[in-house]
Every structure is written in C-alpha cells, then in structure tokens.
Amino acid sequence: MKKTGFAFVLYILMIISPIRNFIESIMIAHMLIQLPLLIFVGWLIGHFIVEKFHSLFNSWNINGVPGMIIVVFITMYWMIPRTLDEALTIGFMEVFKFTSLPVAGVILFDSWRRIGDLGKSFIFLNYLSMFGLMAWLYIDSPIQICNNYLTGQQRILGWGFLIITLAMALYTIQSVFTDHSEENVL
C-alpha cells in the first residue's frame, strides 16, 4: 500500500507542468529519466493491480512471454526519436506516453516474475544491444533527428545510452565470471 501511495505521488509530481516542462526541455532527462520513471510508477503499483485482477493476468500471461513482448514493443516505440518529438507537440501523444509507460510497468512487474531465468537473460541481452544501437545512433547522427532538440542534446543522450550499455556489459561480465556455486538455484 505504501508503494502504491508513493507511486501516486511520483506520478502527480511528474505531471505537474513546471516539472514536466523542465524535464522535457532536456533531451536526456526526457528519455532517460522521465520515461523510466513512468515505467517505475507502473512497476510500483504492479503488485496492487496484479493482485486485484489476478485471474485476468493468469489467463493471458501465464508464462510471462506475451506480457514481455508488449513491454518490449512499448519501450521500443518510445525509443524511436520521432515519438519523443511528437509527445512534445501533439497533446494526445503526451497523454499516450503518460498512460502507455505505466501500463508497460505493470505488465513488466507481472511478466518479470513469470518469465524464468532464460527469458530474463534473453531480454537483458536484447536491451543491451538495443541501447548500444541507440548510443551509436544519437552520437553519430550527422543530422538533427528531432525538431525539438538540437544535435548537441542528441549527442549527450547518446553518451547516456553508451554509459548504460557499458554498465550492463560490465554487469553481465561480472555476473558470469563470479562464483555461483553457493547458490543452489540460479
């Protein structure tokens, strides 16, 4: 319950105009702070919602794969440069952003528990290469991709993605090379 309350406050804070405008004025904050936080809101209320609609989630997302596919599509959609742009200029897109990402968070919460270790590793490695590609795209692009952000902003975002990619790669390396023999189940 505490979590749900916190999520609610967080969500309201992000909707408040001055805060929202400030975050969205900086490309890297828009993509790498606002969007993940919106997913996080969904994740936080996930427990509450999934509990409430238990049988519904059980009926279509039993092994977590359908849910994970939806999450991948929603997040991929919001990584396309153009969608960020449209969220700023088209009111409806902004609303869609503020609803679809929390929904993705809820589904992620439900799916992540179900999807199993193999699925987790697979999703993780997929995001690793996707973020690597985003880093490359934003750092390297000779053209201004968004109407609302200058190329300088673009490049900073690219470096942000690169840092995330490297962190994920380092995490993978340390996790496969450190000893897991104490843990019986992996």
Partner: peptide, 12 residues
Amino acid sequence: GRAIIRKYGSLG
C-alpha cells in the same frame, strides 16, 4: 551458459 554456471559455478 546458465547450465554450465549452475553446475560449475561460473564461466571462468
């Protein structure tokens, strides 16, 4: 990879 880690502890 997971199977090897489960049995032997790590890829190393």
